[in-house]
Write a protein that binds this DNA or RNA. Structure first.
Length: 591
RNA sequence: GGCUCCGUAGCUCAGUUGGUUUAGAGCGCCGGCCUGUCACGUCGGAGGUCGCGGGUUCAAGUCCCGUCGGAGUCGCCA
């Protein structure tokens, strides 16, 4: 070892010891005579003092004078106690100094493009290009450490519950459903490609068939889709599958994991079971399949109250089979000007809502450009339906049912944030159950799997296969954390006939199914146990636990919105030889 | 693919309705001085294709178009 101690480790009890430290120059204060160096490693900072009066030769002091930020040093010296007036209460090591006796510069640093110690980090492009410096920042060091703790706790939890960690291939077969695949060309098989896994879904089901009845893996997954603040093209799932279980077993297992993490990471006891609501209930009350339940402000239906009102927009929407729904923002009337409300109207237009009606609640009724269309009785009924109080601001959307959900769900989330209706440090976990098994894809006039095609239908709903597939509920479950999808899973189909029924509806005929999923279908024919599983988005969990608002901060080497790694320069062109080996020719597209 | 925001010194930013010759500040950097600082102090200095290309104009960092890069979002994400 090049060092006897770490920089953050030394305290008063080390006084008089001779120590050797290694680290980076965090800052220097050169007084001409005395030189102070703050030496930093990932354990902390300590002040090193170079005192010319205490050394025989000037060599040590001259060298200390050449030190610059981010130089890497090895320093030997004596730990000394600071006099009372020189104690720095801001540092855990602030009661002591290391008085340098020997200095070796292990590596000079170029002047860094930014200081790790900066209070005001530079733009992200620069941070990502110089990620090795960015990662020296205490905040990112904390985040990496936290992430390590989470994965350790997760592994320990599943290990204690008898789960086996089994790796599955990264080079797999492209299956056409779902997200766009990242493809890897084969050298040996001309014109053929591997696909990087979108998730280990099929392999983990096959592990169940193989008899490993409790599986977990911290698995890297790849999806070639556009990025978001909480979405990277490669990300990490905590992947879980269990055999001989029902839905309830998965829910309880994950409930236990949540309690374990909350206890270990935050010292909070969380009551179990975690709250559950149905997909239908979530859409009805919150307009979202991942509602933030840290606050209420539920959606309310006004259809019966305004069916015969004087306001044509509401009446017509209902007459055309649509809905009139709204929400009541507590004490927001004075906080939102007409201009602010116009902005909200533009915002919900993204979700296809054609308009946003609003009422300011006054002691005597409703104040709004459209209040003249509503009789005093109707106004009173609306106020009563929302249980509104003077000073509240009511928003109403009249549109097709799903549009009212999407628009009001988005509006609710935004108002909750803007009105600070919740404590941002609170963690709220809940289950959303019974998603629809299929959703109608109007563009392509076909049914799509809502979750994936291996998800078991609720038994009572099986007759709907013939009559109304949109009614079939899935034996699925999503975990929602603070309005984010934190995990998603289902009871799987273990009966090849049910599986074929699902494929039929998705428009995958037996021959296509054989081609695409033969290995899974074949496995299901050789004694597949009932099984169920779930996958948790590790990056998002770390984000939520640490209060980060973007996923890149919890990933050591993340990619930009255009899926580029600014540090390495990936993706990049390759040699002609490499392409030739892979039987690939690049064709310039005409513009 | 659509919409929105951002790009001025190494970094963070200012730069007015287009008009003061030489585009500023703080931090950082370089040099001098400084023995108890810890956001050290102090004196001096260097550092700019205003992302790039085109256009409008007597005049463009400022207005317009295109483009590149970064961010947010809708679509997309079984």
């Amino acid at each position: 070892m090049l060092r006897t101690h770490t920089c953050g480790q030394l305290r008063r009890e080390h006084v008089d010891q001779t120590v050797t430290l290694c680290g980076w120059v965090d800052s220097r204060r050169d007084h001409g005579g005395l030189i102070f160096i703050d030496l930093r490693d990932r354990y902390g900072k300590i002040q090193v003092v170079f005192d010319p009066s205490k050394s025989a030769s000037t060599e040590l002091h001259d060298l200390a004078g050449t030190l610059r930020n981010e130089d890497v040093l090895r320093v030997s010296g004596t730990v000394v106690r600071r006099s009372e007036k020189d104690v720095n209460p801001k540092l855990p090591t602030g009661e002591i100094d290391v008085r340098a006796l020997e200095l070796k510069v292990l590596n000079k640093s170029r002047t860094p493009p930014f200081e790790p110690g900066t209070t005001d980090p530079p733009n992200e492009e620069l941070r990502l290009r110089y990620r090795f410096i960015d990662l020296r920042r205490p905040r990112l060091q904390e985040l990496m450490l936290f992430r390590h703790r989470v994965t350790k706790l997760v592994r320990d939890y599943f290990d204690e519950h008898g789960f086996l960690d089994i790796e599955t291939p990264m080079l797999g077969r492209s299956t056409p459903e779902g997200a766009r695949d990242y493809l890897v060309p084969s050298r040996v098989h001309e014109g053929c490609f591997y696909a990087l896994p979108q998730s280990p879904q099929i392999y983990k089901q096959i592990l169940m068939v193989a008899g490993f009845d409790r599986y977990m893996q911290i698995a890297r997954c790849f999806r070639d889709e556009d990025l978001r603040a909480d979405r990277q093209p490669e990300f990490t799932q905590i992947d879980v599958e269990m055999a001989f279980v029902e839905r309830e077993d998965i829910l309880q297992t994950i409930d236990g994991l949540v309690a374990h993490l909350m206890r270990s990471l935050r010292g909070e006891e969380i009551p179990l079971p975690l709250p559950r609501l149905s997909h239908r209930e979530a859409m009805e009350k919150y307009g979202s399949d991942k509602p933030d339940l840290r606050f209420g402000m539920e959606l309310v239906d006004l259809g019966d109250l305004v069916a015969n009102c004087g306001f044509a927009v509401f009446k017509n929407a209902l007459a055309e089979g649509g809905r009139v729904r709204g929400l009541c923002a507590p004490q927001a009337a004075a906080k939102y000007s007409r201009k602010n409300i116009d902005e909200l109207t533009t915002y919900i237009a993204d979700f296809k809502a054609k308009g946003l009606a609003f009422f300011r609640v006054t002691p005597t009724g409703l104040d709004s450009p459209i209040s003249k269309f509503f009789s005093p009785d109707e106004q009173a009924a609306i106020i009563a339906r929302f249980q509104a109080a003077a000073g509240d601001l009511i928003f109403i959307v009249a549109d097709k049912g799903p549009v009212t959900s999407a628009a009001l769900g988005a509006l609710r989330a935004r108002l909750g944030r803007e009105l600070k209706l919740y404590d941002p440090n609170q963690m709220h976990f809940s289950w959303v159950l019974d998603f629809p098994l299929f959703s109608w894809n109007a563009e392509e006039s076909r049914w799509d799997a809502e979750h994936h095609p291996f998800c078991n239908p609720v038994e009572d709903d099986v007759p709907y296969f013939q009559t109304d597939p949109g009614q079939i509920r899935a034996q699925s479950y999503d975990m929602v954390i603070n309005g984010c999808e934190g995990a998603s899973g289902s009871v799987r189909i273990h009966d090849p006939q049910v599986q074929q029924q699902v494929f039929d509806l998705l428009g995958i005929d037996p021959q296509q199914a054989e081609e695409r999923f033969s290995f899974l279908l074949e496995a299901l024919r050789y004694g597949a146990p009932p099984h169920a599983g779930i996958a948790l988005g590790l990056d998002r969990w770390v984000m939520l636990f640490t209060g980060c608002d973007n996923i890149r901060d919890v990933i050591a080497f993340p990619k930009t919105q255009k899926a580029a790694d600014l540090l390495s320069g990936a993706p990049a062109a390759v040699d002609a030889k490499q392409l030739k080996d892979l039987h690939i020719r690049i064709v310039e597209e005409n513009r």
